[in-house]
């Protein structure tokens, strides 16, 4: 089974802070990581490959620096990685990004001399949180999709997907090739070993630009290919002037709050 894993390098949003004075994001010193959901996609992809044979190829769109993220994936079982990078791709929204990726996937199939049976993505990237690129890649490629996968299970060479739903999960089968987006797995992504880390460090990561993807329509890339426009961004300021009880005995404070709640007719 040949598997393509789409990953994104993101800032570790847990480490992002807002400057209390300027109310802007402080990105300095925030480490770049592989989008956590993508690491699960990568792990399940490698597990499927280990069972069924084939190849796991990682692709990522981003600046030169995103090669680091691809190397991280190579150190935990991916066989090859491609960086999709061009100034013409900058400023793409999800529609344009998914278009570029879907065209890149075809180009990579050509270069690797194979057809992907499965395209895996994380549910969403933790910086944008849109969860759109996966389904949109499926649409561009005309493939079936399953989102919110909790696990992908191999059964007689076919796959079944556990899809998260309100009270548990749905077991879903699909025709292949297909796109699956992954939430979390019942197991953790593996750790790189020293040998795999060293080997990944040495691996060449080809960069694909529009020149390597001849079929691409540049009108549909970047700002011109993006129907959504960001009008403004701001940091949320939420400050209530609530009642704060300090230095009181627990019992008295509790009684006071309960009284306030009933006085305000909240209950």
């Amino acid at each position: 089974m040949n598997i393509c894993v789409c990953i994104k390098q993101v800032p570790d949003t847990n480490e992002i802070k807002v400057d209390p004075v300027t109310h802007t994001l402080v990105r300095k010193g925030v480490p770049s990581i592989v989008n956590p959901f993508d690491t699960y996609a990568q792990e399940v992809g490698v597990r499927l490959k280990e069972k069924l044979g084939g190849k796991v190829v990682v692709i990522s769109m981003g600046p030169e620096q995103a090669k680091e993220a691809i190397k991280t994936c190579l150190s935990v079982g991916a066989d090859a990685g491609y960086l999709i990078s061009s100034r013409k791709f900058g400023g793409s929204d999800t529609l344009a990004t998914s278009y570029i990726l879907s065209e890149a996937i075809k180009a990579v199939e050509e270069k690797e001399g194979l057809k992907f049976d499965l395209i895996l993505c994380g549910k969403q990237a933790v910086d944008g949180d849109t969860a759109q690129v996966g389904p949109e890649i499926a649409e561009h490629l005309g493939l079936p999709q399953i989102t919110y996968a909790l696990d992908i299970i191999e059964k007689d060479g076919d796959i079944q997907v556990k899809r998260e739903c309100d009270e548990g999960y749905d077991m879903i089968s699909t025709q292949l090739p297909a796109v699956v987006t992954v939430v979390r797995l019942p197991y953790e992504p593996r750790y790189p070993t020293i040998k795999s880390k060293m080997a990944a460090k040495k691996k060449e990561i080809p960069v694909l630009t529009e020149e390597d993807i001849p079929a691409i329509n540049l009108e549909r890339c970047g700002l011109s290919g993006s129907p959504t426009k960001v009008k403004k961004t701001y940091t949320p300021v939420t400050e209530k002037n609530g009642v704060k009880l300090e230095g009181m005995e627990a019992e008295d404070a509790a009684k006071e709050v309960v009284k306030l709640i009933y006085d305000a007719k909240i209950l």
Partner: peptide, 16 residues
């Protein structure tokens, strides 16, 4: 919508 883990709000339009 919230983005960057809720640290940033973005207002987005689809004009065309």
């Amino acid at each position: 919508r919230p983005t960057f883990g809720g640290n940033l709000m973005a207002t987005i339009m689809c004009p065309e």
